[in-house]
């Protein structure tokens, strides 16, 4: 079962998975952080209260989040083809991953910002800070530990999504598990991919928690 060819396949799978997950998480954050910030500051008690924007953005986020990933994956195949020119392979998988992960990340960012002590924001306002100064110098730095924990959760969720993409010809460990384990009944390969996925999740989670703990100055050491 585990000949050098198989090892090579698994290694490629790991690299493809990491590529898909890291790139799509990165893009999802580039989209999700601003969206999360806007959701937060336009809310009822936010620093830039704006009901219409809050409701419209919130609805879009909820709509995207309510579609199961496997359905979204298939539903946006034409969009994926339009963006990257193909629907097969790891690069093509990044498109649905970003579409699914961005609203998720936006909500994670919003909830991290909500944890910031309202008094600190009030203090900044009392000093005459502009909304942009409050976002850059208060909200994001104060929420940093929580944002890091959130990113560890986001990355493991995206890893789970990426495995599903194997069904529609996406690459990575998910594709290996489906092709060998599901279509060819090679339980051993299936088990190994599962183990590798578990290890990757553990590493992401552990690193995220440690970095968050290290950067959090609220913890007495």
């Amino acid at each position: 079962m585990l000949n050098s060819g198989m090892l090579q396949t698994l290694l490629t799978g790991i690299l493809e998975t990491l590529y898909m997950v890291v790139v799509s998480t990165g893009i999802a954050y580039i989209i999700g952080i601003p969206v999360g910030i806007v959701l937060y500051i336009t809310s009822e008690n936010g620093i830039c209260r704006n009901k219409p924007i809050h409701i419209i953005l919130g609805t879009i986020v909820n709509l995207l989040r309510s579609v199961p990933f496997i359905v979204l994956l298939i539903a946006i195949l034409p969009f994926t083809r339009a963006v990257v020119g193909t629907t097969i392979g790891s690069t093509a998988t990044i498109v649905p991953l970003v579409v699914a992960a961005s609203p998720f990340v936006a909500r994670m960012v919003e909830s991290s910002l909500k944890e910031v002590n309202a008094g600190v924001i009030e203090a900044a306002e009392s000093m005459g800070a502009t909304p942009l100064q409050i976002i850059w110098k208060v909200l994001l730095p104060e929420a940093k530990p929580s944002l890091i924990v959130g990113s560890a959760i986001a990355i493991t969720t995206i890893l789970g999504y990426s495995a599903m993409a194997g069904f529609t010809g996406g690459g990575g460990l998910g594709a290996i598990a489906i092709n060998y384990g599901y279509y060819r009944y090679e339980d051993g390969v299936m088990l190994i991919t599962v183990l590798i996925l578990v290890v990757i999740v553990q590493i992401f989670q552990e690193v995220g928690m440690r970095v968050a703990f290290k950067t959090d100055k609220r913890i007495k050491r």
Binding site: A124, S126, M127, T130, Q133, K137, P141, P145
Partner: peptide
């Protein structure tokens, strides 16, 4: 507001900044 500062019951310092950096904050603004 910069000529009318305020202090609070719960202090409201930035928890992720040192004492010195907290005082620098209004100056950065």
């Amino acid at each position: 507001r910069k000529s009318m500062s305020m202090i609070f019951q719960s202090f409201n310092l930035l928890s992720q900044r040192t004492a010195l950096k907290n005082i620098c904050y209004p100056l950065e603004i």
